[in-house]
Design a protein around this nucleic acid. Structure first.
Lengths: 61, 61
DNA sequence: TTGACTATATATAATTT
DNA sequence: TAAATTATATATAGTCA
């Protein structure tokens, strides 16, 4: 998306991963939230960054 | 998205939830996959539909 | 950097078949 | 009708402050 078309392939450089990781993770979280609200779905989402940091989303349904 | 703007609020009618649920769940899965590949992230995603069906995505990192 | 912008790719609501 | 299409809303890659 955006100005360039992205290949779904590994961004090799760890530093270059950081901004995309942050943006995509945040978008994924938003989508999970929307699905949970719109369709009354229970969702758990767990993401570990390459650096080993944990991010999670969960709703109680 | 699409032709109408969607409110982030519960679709009350269970039948009317079904198509959006299927589309949004599939989009969420795709986004999770993209994040896992692009940024070498480990992700687990668990979704229960209102009907109690389980959908999951996980990558081994 | 971290965040804002914006041009453009993508996702999807409504529609059609 | 379930799948394909299409028009449009949304997400985001690249850019810049």
């Amino acid at each position: 998306m955006g100005r360039g078309k992205t290949q779904v392939k590994l961004i090799e450089d760890r530093t270059s991963q950081q901004v995309p990781f942050s943006k995509l993770r945040s978008g994924l979280h938003r989508k999970a939230f929307q699905l949970s609200v719109l369709c009354d779905a229970e969702i758990a989402l767990v993401v570990f960054s390459p650096g080993g940091r944990l991010y999670e989303f969960a709703n109680a349904g």
